[in-house]
Design a protein around this nucleic acid. Sequence first.
DNA 1: TTGAAAGCGCTAACAG
DNA 2: CTGTTAGCGCTTTCAA
Lengths: 340, 340
Amino acid sequence: MTPTPSPVSGRPTMRDVARRAGVGVSTVSRVVSGDVRVSPARTAAVRTAIAELGFRRNDSARQLRKGAAASIGLLIESVSDPFFSLITQAVEEVANDRDSLLMSASSNRDAERARKMILAFCARRVDGLIITPPESQSIDYLRQELLAGVRMVFIDRPVPGLEADTVLTDNVGGARAAVEHLIAHGHRRIACFTDRHELFTSINRVLGYRQALEAAGIPIDPSLIHASVNGAYRFAEPLAALLDGPNPPTAVFTGNNRATSTILRELSRRPETLALVGFDDFELADVVQPGVSVIAQDPLTMGRIAANLLFSRLDGDSSPVQTITLRTSLIARGSGEIRA
Amino acid sequence: MTPTPSPVSGRPTMRDVARRAGVGVSTVSRVVSGDVRVSPARTAAVRTAIAELGFRRNDSARQLRKGAAASIGLLIESVSDPFFSLITQAVEEVANDRDSLLMSASSNRDAERARKMILAFCARRVDGLIITPPESQSIDYLRQELLAGVRMVFIDRPVPGLEADTVLTDNVGGARAAVEHLIAHGHRRIACFTDRHELFTSINRVLGYRQALEAAGIPIDPSLIHASVNGAYRFAEPLAALLDGPNPPTAVFTGNNRATSTILRELSRRPETLALVGFDDFELADVVQPGVSVIAQDPLTMGRIAANLLFSRLDGDSSPVQTITLRTSLIARGSGEIRA
DNA sequence: TTGAAAGCGCTAACAG
DNA sequence: CTGTTAGCGCTTTCAA
């Protein structure tokens, strides 16, 4: 009476369905795959057997046979960072449109973990990879996989020496625009709080900061520049030292989301009102008093472009590898328009 | 000269390695799997061949053969919602510890999409599922998969009629605590802005709101209660109407993150200072003036517990299905302590 | 220790 | 149209 599903997976297979319907497995396969060339009678019989047994095609087996995984891998720094979760959202959207499943992971900036996850994706033979590459010297394994034919798109930062499509934000231009904006409002002492000095985004944003100052003929004062250390944003003391010092800044440029909220938190404890422009937009930037002016990146577009690029490669596009740089936009909300 | 990789995947297989090393495929398999019972000489030969060919085991094939997927599926409402991205982070962490890959997807509250993704996960024969179930009548497919032996854990809301482990927040208790807090500060006219009325979390939070009022002997005024409609939080007009009306509220309870930020945005445009307690903690809640008092959920714990529950089931734990309800905590930051 | 061979569940020729 | 058969790349008896 009870159906006899195959022992290993615990679920009925096409063989079980075929037996039950009194047909061959290929007929079952055809019905399941929507192949038209099956007689109505057999189609019905197969459908019945499928329903009775509760059969559901094993797509892993299917994929193995077909040689395509119908899935892509996404490696970001951290899902809980709004920048990356928006990228994820966009990639999910595109993958969904393409009926591709998404395997996702966060490196948490751990190069070893990034390596582990990327290799795990490759071992699963995903169709392609979208990666925020680890800031690491040892990317040999990436090169190997690339040479082995794994399609990949890098986001947020490039991998020097590797030929692959890359989608970046215009970090230099964005930072420069932020600082120019502050200069235009009369500021000449502009502090800079940013992420770790070694990071690609940070390096470029500080570069933009410097360029803006230099273009305005303002000398660069290293004591105004502070970076996070090992993920810790200890800006309270340096900020206090600057503000209570002899020649305090009148404005602040923050190099990313976390730097902005850290500084915001400190400033809310002090009477001073400094001008502020932050890199990266964030929820409630308009609710804080005054509203926080920002250089907005476009993570949704970044994710969407990366995913579309990947899928077009998978579709056979073999045009030269390209690097796409996304423009930023300055959103004025008040904090950046405070005059010196 | 060039190695001859197998044609379909484009990558060398164990057969290629075996041929090259002059051994049998099972020897290669043993070496790759770290089986000790292989002579040093052959081990070396295999290692060499692997390196020369750039062989990487196809884990999909491996999984098919072994019958375990070493991957789990996670379906949430939306990755870009901090509540769910924190859940994702916790699940990622546990999955990583268990060397399991994570397939993730967002339903965006679309029951059809939820269905599609869940069935896709099942078709891939993931080892188990962590799901924010769609608020939908037709969950027959879920029951079927459950009966077919797919292990699943529901988070954030239960599925009535389905026997599966579930992890919830104490929505009623949290909301009640929020409103009791406001009442304790002298408020008797407390408005309530919340998510769609039909949703599990919303229903329970409004219930907690009502319970607190009733317990204090305060009659419930339906005109004080407003819900979002189809994902749109149009609270500006109802709030204005209440504040400009005859008997305005002196406090507000918001039923989730988005309601809180919407109300916060409106209040920042008005001179009035209302007391406010919001359900869900959020970044910068302490930076806004005054700091926003909240009922904090614990998404990291929710994700971690759900994932651990799932893996313990996969490890063979067959104790009765359980529902775990997570306590909330009230974080006082100022807005909730404003007196009537 | 080792290799041959039988599958995991599915698809895709290839004959009928 | 349909069924038989040979794999996809791997693991795992089973003999040797």
